[in-house]
């Protein structure tokens, strides 16, 4: 089953940074996403989240990886562009 591996990074606390003791990860099967969310994810990978500078500071970003028969690829996109079903699949934890 094709999976999206999702990591929430950054924010005021620097989630997922080098040496950070807080991280947020999760995964979701592409087949379990709604048609609209599947299209949104497809668009994110196509545009690679668009890289225009943003005025947001301390916002979370999401590192999203997918592995399909065509191979693996990873993008990093700001939280505002990520479908709620992906935002909801990660869990914040202390490490």
């Amino acid at each position: 089953m094709d999976l999206l591996v999702v990591e929430r990074i950054g924010g005021l606390a620097g989630f997922g940074g080098p040496g950070a003791h807080v991280r947020s990860r999760g995964q979701v099967a592409i087949a379990r996403l709604s048609e609209a969310d599947r299209r949104a994810v497809e668009e994110l990978f196509r545009t690679r989240g668009d890289s225009r500078p943003s005025a947001v500071r301390d916002g979370f970003s999401y590192r999203i990886s997918r592995t399909t028969s065509a191979g693996s690829e990873t993008i990093e996109v700001p939280e505002s562009m990520v479908p709620a079903s992906l935002v909801g699949c990660v869990k914040d934890e202390l490490i």
Partner: peptide, 17 residues
């Protein structure tokens, strides 16, 4: 929500988990 941020116009605060 485990974060606070500035969005270019305003501040936003979460309640924490």
């Amino acid at each position: 929500y485990n974060n606070a941020f500035w969005n270019g116009t305003q501040m936003t605060y979460g309640d924490g988990d």
